Amino acid sequence: MKRIIIVFAFLAILASCNSETKTKDNGTEQSDTTIKLETDTSGEVDIALKDITTDEALIATALMAAPEESRANATVIGYNMAGEFVTLKEGSNEFICLADDPNKAGFSAACYHKNLEPFMARGRALKAEGKTFQEIFDIREAEAKSGKLDMGGLGSALHIYFGSETQYNPETSEVPGAQYRYVVYMPFATAESTGLPEVPLAPNHPWIMNPGTHRAHIMISPIPQKKE
C-alpha cells in the first residue's frame, strides 16, 4: 500500500514538471514569435505614399531638386494648388527652386542658381504670352546677343528632379523612381571652345547642347541607381 502511494506521488510530481515545462516552452515560443514578427514587420512595412496635393507637399518635393545642404534656405516658386504662380517659400541663399506643376502629367521640379532668374523669368513671361518654344528661343537669343537679357554668366547650374510618379514619401519628401539631371549654362559656348562632344558618347557622359547659342549648356544625366 505504501509503495502504491509513493508511485502515485511520483507520478503526480512528474506530471506537474511536464506541465510546467510545456508552459515555459509555450511562453518562450510566443515571445520569440512576437519578436520575430516585429522584426519581420519593421523590415517590410512600406511608408504610405501621398499625392502631391498641398502647397506644403509642393515645397517639400521641390526642395529635393536642390543640394541637400542648401534646401533649408532655398527659395521655392511655382504654381500653388489654387493655380496661381507665387513664391511658395522665401529663401536666403543662391538657389531658386521651381515646384512641380500640379496640372501637368508626371513630376518635375527644378532648382537653379539665382543668376539664371532673368533668363528663366523671361521664358515664363513669353510662354504666358502664348509664344511657342521656337519663338521663345529666338526672342531670348536676340535679347542675349544685344545684352538686353542677362544670362547670368558662365557656369550657372540647373538641377532637375523628375519622374513619372505623382506621389511622394511624406517622411523623406522623395518621389519614388525620380532621378536627377544637371545642366550647366555656358552661353555661346561650342564643342571647340569646351572640348565637349555635341552628343553623349555614353550614359552619364557630359555633352554640350545648343552649342553656339545663348542657351548652350552642358548636359549631365547620372545613371539611375539600381534598387537592391
Rank of each mutant, 00 (worst) to 15 (best):
K127Y: 05
F10H: 00
K127F: 08
T172Q: 12
T41Q: 07
R215C: 03
E20R: 12
A202W: 05
S173E: 04
K148S: 13
E68P: 03
M186Q: 15
I136C: 11
A12L: 06
H159Q: 09
N210Y: 13
G163Q: 01
F85M: 01
P102V: 05
T194N: 08
A121W: 06
E129Q: 15
R71N: 03
L49Q: 08
G152K: 03
R124A: 10
P222M: 04
E165A: 13
D51M: 06
S193R: 03
I220K: 06
E84K: 15
T39P: 01
D100F: 05
I218P: 12
T213V: 03
A12H: 01
V175Q: 10
K148C: 00
I160M: 11
D51K: 11
V184P: 04
Y185S: 10
G91D: 05
Q134N: 11
G123P: 11
R124D: 05
I47Y: 05
P222Y: 03
V76H: 09
G43T: 12
D32Q: 13
N169Q: 12
L14C: 12
I52S: 02
G130Y: 01
M120L: 03
M151T: 15
D100E: 03
V76T: 10
D32E: 14
E143Q: 15
N169F: 03
M81N: 04
A57R: 00
G163L: 00
T41Y: 11
R215L: 13
S42Y: 02
T87Y: 02
M209K: 12
Q167T: 15
P224W: 01
A142I: 09
L154R: 14
P203F: 05
Y168P: 02
N93Q: 04
I4F: 06
T23H: 07
N80G: 10
Y112G: 01
M64K: 13
I220M: 09
K226L: 11
V7Y: 00
L58G: 09
M81K: 08
L37G: 08
P206A: 00
I77D: 07
S146M: 03
S31V: 04
L154N: 15
E228K: 14
T61Y: 01
M151Q: 09
T33H: 04
K89I: 06
L98S: 13
I6L: 00
N93L: 04
S146W: 04
P118Y: 07
N115C: 05
R140S: 13
L149C: 08
P67N: 02
K104H: 02
V175K: 08
K50L: 12
H214E: 14
D32K: 14
G153S: 01
K227D: 08
K22V: 10
F133W: 06
N115M: 07
F133A: 11
E56Y: 01
G27D: 08
K89N: 05
V86T: 15
L63H: 05
P67S: 05
R140M: 15
A144G: 02
V199S: 14
R215E: 12
K127N: 12
D101N: 15
T213N: 03
A109M: 00
G147T: 14
P206M: 01
N210D: 14
A60V: 06
A9H: 00
Q167D: 07
L126A: 14
P222F: 04
E38H: 08
Y185V: 08
G78M: 09
P224F: 02
L63M: 07
K89M: 03
A99S: 11
A142M: 06
E192T: 08
G155N: 05
L116Y: 11
Y112N: 05
E29V: 09
A109P: 06
G152M: 12
T21H: 10
A48G: 07
P200K: 08
I136W: 01
